[in-house]
Amino acid sequence: MPEPLRMNRRTWGVAWAVLCAAAVAATAALNASPAPDPRPEKPVSAECAEYIANVETQLAEAKEEGNEDGVLAFTRTRVGADDCSDEILDHFSGDR
């Protein structure tokens, strides 16, 4: 069986320094690159827009009643209704 290669401390130090320099250069390049373009707004169905407006109304009513730190739960009771979960997350998440 061949004997493993032995590297002295100087070789390890040089290899470590090269990796660190590469990491610093990559970080600087990533920090200098422009931010990606924001995602375009996806159209929201009329049913989802109505549901979001209803949620905003209920949140405003709860805030007026002093329940702003409580938990509000919303459910869909109609069968076959649009799944608006992605639209609701996009609307209420702000800047993600």
Rank of each mutant, 00 (worst) to 15 (best):
S85Q: 12
G80T: 02
E47R: 03
E47Y: 07
G94N: 04
S85M: 13
L59K: 08
R6K: 10
T75R: 15
Q58L: 10
R6T: 02
V71H: 07
D82L: 07
I52T: 00
A26I: 03
P34N: 00
V79T: 12
T11M: 09
E50M: 03
E87I: 12
C20A: 15
T27V: 15
N31C: 14
D86Q: 04
D90F: 04
I88S: 09
A62V: 09
L5S: 13
D82T: 01
A62K: 00
A26D: 07
D90S: 05
G13M: 12
A29L: 09
G66E: 02
E41Y: 05
A73I: 09
T27W: 15
G94Y: 02
V79C: 13
L19D: 00
C84W: 01
C84E: 02
A81S: 03
N31M: 15
A28S: 03
E3Y: 15
A46K: 11
P2D: 08
Y51M: 10
G80C: 02
T11V: 01
A21V: 11
E87G: 03
D90I: 05
E68I: 07
E3A: 14
E3Q: 14
R10F: 03
H91D: 02
E65I: 12
M1P: 12
P38F: 09
G13H: 08
A25P: 04
P34K: 01
S93T: 10
R9G: 11
G80M: 13
E41A: 11
E65F: 04
P38V: 00
H91V: 10
E87Q: 09
D69P: 11
R76F: 13
T57D: 10
L5W: 12
A32C: 05
G66P: 05
T75G: 03
C84M: 08
S93Y: 02
M7P: 01
E87Y: 14
T77Q: 06
D90L: 07
L30K: 01
A26M: 03
P4C: 11
A26Q: 08
Q58M: 09
E68C: 07
R6C: 07
A32R: 06
E47H: 06
A60W: 09
V44Q: 04
G80L: 00
V55H: 02
I52Y: 05
R9E: 15
P40T: 12
A23H: 02
V55M: 13
S85K: 07
D86T: 10
N67F: 15
R9S: 13
A15F: 06
E68N: 14
T57H: 12
P43A: 05
G80H: 05
